[in-house]
Nucleic acid binder design. Structure first.
Lengths: 108, 108
DNA sequence: TCAATCCATCGGCAATTTCCGATGGGAATT
DNA sequence: AATTCCCATCGGAAATTGCCGATGGATTGA
C-alpha cells in the first residue's frame, strides 16, 4: 500500500458513519451484510448511505457482489491489514525498539 | 482509545500534509523537529501549517514543548500504537484467525 | 530597552464534504 | 408484461475544510 492508498483509506475511515459501517462489516466477516441492513443500522437516507459506501469501496475497504436482488457488502480484511502495516511500518522503520510494545499488545 | 479518539486520529492523518508531517516526526523520534523545519519541509505558509499542526496535536499524535525560541514537535508513538491497536482489534475481535497474517507481517 | 524571531490566531475566500429527496436502471416476482 | 424491490446517481443546500496574509503575544539577542 502506497501513501496515496493509505490516505484514501484513512479518509474513508475518518467519518463516524463509515467507521461504524466498516466495523459492523468486520464483525460480520466473511459473510457480510446487505446494503439495506447497513442503511437501517445507520439511520441515514438510502442515497446518503450509498455515497458513504462508495467511499469505502473506492478505498478498497469494502467489496460488494450481487446476491439475488440484494447487494452483499463485505469488509476487505486484506486492505485493513495493509493499512495497519502502513502505519506500523512508519512506527518501526529502522527502529524495532519502538515496535516491540505494539507487537506485545497485538498478541490477542 | 475509544471510537471518538480514533476518528480524530484518522481524520488528522487523512491529509497529505499532515501524514507527511507525522511520518517525518516519526522518523525523527524521539528527538523531534522544530516547527520552522516542518513548515519549510511542507512548503506551505506558516499560518496554514500551524493549523495542520494543531489538528495533529488535538488528536494526540504530536506533542510540543518549547526549546529556546523554537517549539520542538515530537510524534507520540503511544497514540500511533493505540490507533493501530484500535484498528487491529476490529480485525481480531473473536477471530484470531484473521489476525495471524497481520502479526506475521509485523515481525519486522 | 529595542529590534528580531518564532509561532498561534483572526478574517475572509474558494473548494470540498455531507446531507436530502427525486429519478431511473436492473433484477425478481406476479 | 407489469409491478415491486434494491440501489446508484443527479441536483442543490448547508456545513466544514483548507488556504492565505495580517496581526499580535512571547522570547531571545543586541
Amino acid at each position: 500500500m502506497d501513501q496515496e492508498q493509505a490516505l484514501t483509506a484513512l479518509a474513508a475511515l475518518s467519518h463516524p458513519t463509515r467507521l461504524d459501517t466498516f466495523r459492523m462489516l468486520v464483525r460480520h466477516a466473511p459473510k457480510g451484510c446487505t446494503t439495506g441492513e447497513l442503511v437501517e443500522a445507520t439511520g441515514l437516507s438510502q442515497s446518503t448511505f450509498s455515497t458513504h459506501l462508495a467511499v469505502l469501496a473506492k478505498a478498497g475497504l469494502v467489496r460488494s457482489h450481487k446476491q439475488g436482488r440484494h447487494h452483499l457488502q463485505c469488509a476487505d480484511i486484506d486492505t485493513l491489514r495493509a493499512l495497519i502495516l502502513f502505519l506500523a511500518t512508519d512506527c518501526c522503520q529502522g527502529r524495532a525498539d519502538l515496535c516491540e510494545p505494539l507487537l506485545a499488545d497485538l498478541a490477542c
